[in-house]
Design a protein around this nucleic acid. Structure first.
Length: 478
RNA sequence: CGGCGUGUGGCUCAGCUUGGUAGAGCGCUUCGUUCGGGACGAAGAGGUCGCAGGUUCAAAUCCUGUCACGCCGACCA
């Protein structure tokens, strides 16, 4: 009983206070710590390792499509940033400036990159001459800085890690194709590896990227019914090419402007992992992204042979999985709770009784299901359990999203959902910005995207009653 | 940026109203006993009270300012 009490106190329950639950999990799982710089987070080993796995997996998928990695400078001269009008206006309010070098004031201010479109454009204007130079398919892994007013670990920090891909193409068609291709890379990655289902669609003009012709997005639904924009892919058309004079000579010796794209995913996605899969005991990591997949917990470890058997088990499983032994001088119960808090997918309990019976107890993190497994074929058994867990997590996330997606045909129903249930709202929209802004003003809900998979729910806009143009996902967002 | 709230050993907090030598629990260290859902005993280490200024014989406590964090709102590709 006393132990139960302690557990309850450790992490605030989701029901009671979701925001506090999130903060508790992030801290208790030791993913992040606050730093001495306002709004900047420290990624601790457990958090950074998740990012490293995300990087590894995404990087491989990018390269399979022909993308190459580069690294651009941290600083952007003010004059360069200002070349594309919409772009500057979009980012100006949240840019950090360097004004001094040592003791001397700089002749021209440098901004700390909030994103690197301008640098890539500058580069492309120099290195693209001929249609033979195209396409350029570059990506960089880096951090960017945006002077945010309020911050939360992973979801919004002033400096964050991400990747930004920037491509230049000969034709508009090719650029559009690449934009969609990368959106699909993100969506597939999220589903297959992170077990997070995504709604794919296009952003409205109001929500699109500063300077883009079209922005596509993947949107996920969190456990509390709020939406999280999880990755974006932009088609710039030839807008930046005109601003930066990126021209090439085509097969007919005519000058043409390139068509560009950019696409990004950030450490914010780790926030999605936490808020989609986590529970009241802490983090739950999908097996395919977990830095440590298995924790072996010896029981009665001071008894002759127990620790040795645990180490042997680790060594055996290490050929296929990432495994650790918790041989600290804590009680088993403490270790169980710790493993659960950290979201390690599977733990294996092994004690004197097990060793005698040539078995171990395998426990899944997501549903706490216990399986007694023979030590003779434990690698195969654990592989099957991890696979099943990965699949079940995705299935649960899809079920949760579907249960919390509401088709709405009237304004009353729209506001009713927001006050009582939250979640995604599918509704028809007239396509007018003023109407979109009014909806946000009245309810706090924003357009998340115009999904690729369209349905015709009615003939009129859910808010203003004018003829409807498109079905939109609405929701309250992080 | 606006409203509300919070800053006291590593953590959670008490003390502040009514100024007078800084407390508790957890954690940590050492030794011993334990070990199948956050074990127990003994002995130890560790803080100058977010920061700066002021009032006072005397400030964690009163006053002013400031910084950070949290929540809500505004803002945010």
């Amino acid at each position: 009983m006393a132990n139960d009490k302690k557990l309850v106190e450790a992490i605030t329950s989701m029901e009671e206070d979701f925001a506090q639950w999130y903060t508790d999990v992030v801290k208790k799982a030791e993913l992040v710590d606050y730093s001495s710089v306002r709004g900047c987070m420290i990624l601790r080993p457990a958090g950074y390792a998740i990012w490293e796995n995300i990087q590894k997996e995404l990087d491989r998928r990018f390269k399979e499509t022909g993308v190459e990695n580069v690294y651009m400078p941290l600083f952007i001269p003010e004059s360069l940033l200002q070349k594309e009008k919409d772009h500057v206006e979009g980012f100006a309010p949240e840019v950090a400036w360097v004004t001094h070098g040592g003791l001397e004031e700089l002749p021209e201010r440098l901004c700390v990159r909030p994103t690197s479109e301008t640098l890539f454009c500058d580069l492309y204007s120099n290195i693209v001459q001929s249609y033979r130079d195209l396409p350029k398919l570059y990506n960089q892994w880096c951090s960017v800085v945006r002077w945010e007013k309020t911050t939360r670990p992973f979801l919004r920090s002033m400096e964050f890690l991400w990747q930004e891909g920037h491509t230049a193409h000969a034709t508009a068609e090719e650029a559009e194709e690449r934009t969609i291709q990368m959106l699909n890379v993100y969506a597939d990655f999220c589903e297959e590896v992170l077990a997070i289902p995504m709604i794919k669609g296009r952003k409205t003009d109001k929500e699109k990227f500063a300077g883009a012709h079209a922005t596509y997005t993947i949107e996920a639904l969190m456990h509390d019914g709020k939406a999280l924009q999880s990755g974006t892919s932009h088609n710039f058309g030839d807008g930046f090419a005109h601003a930066f004079d990126i021209q090439y000579t085509d097969e007919n010796n005519k000058l043409q402007y390139v068509h560009q794209t950019s696409w990004g995913m950030s450490t914010r996605i780790i926030g999605a992992i936490i808020m989609v899969h986590g529970d009241d005991s802490g983090l739950v990591l999908p097996p395919r992204i977990a830095p440590t997949q298995i924790m072996v917990i010896p029981v009665n470890q001071r008894k002759e042979g127990v620790l040795d058997r645990a180490y042997a088990l680790r060594d055996e499983l290490s050929s296929r999985f990432s495994v650790k032994v918790d041989d600290s001088n804590k009680s088993p119960g403490w270790k169980f709770s710790e493993q659960e808090m950290r979201g390690i997918p599977v733990r294996i309990e092994i004690g004197p009784k097990d060793i005698e019976a040539n078995q171990a107890v395998v426990v899944r993190r997501d549903n706490r299901e216990k399986t007694i497994v023979s030590l003779d074929n434990i690698t195969e058994a654990v592989a099957a359990i991890l696979e099943q867990m990965q699949a079940d997590m995705l299935a649960r996330a899809i079920a949760h999203r579907d249960e919390n997606t509401h088709e709405v045909r009237t304004w009353d129903a729209f506001t009713d959902v927001l006050t009582r249930k939250q979640g995604f709202i599918k509704a028809m929209w007239c396509g007018e910005r003023a109407c979109e802004e009014a909806i946000k003003e009245e309810t706090g809900a924003t357009t998340r995207c115009m999904p690729f998979e369209q349905e015709k729910l009615s003939d009129v806009c859910v808010h203003c009653g004018k003829p409807a143009k498109v079905m939109v996902y609405f929701g309250k967002a992080y």
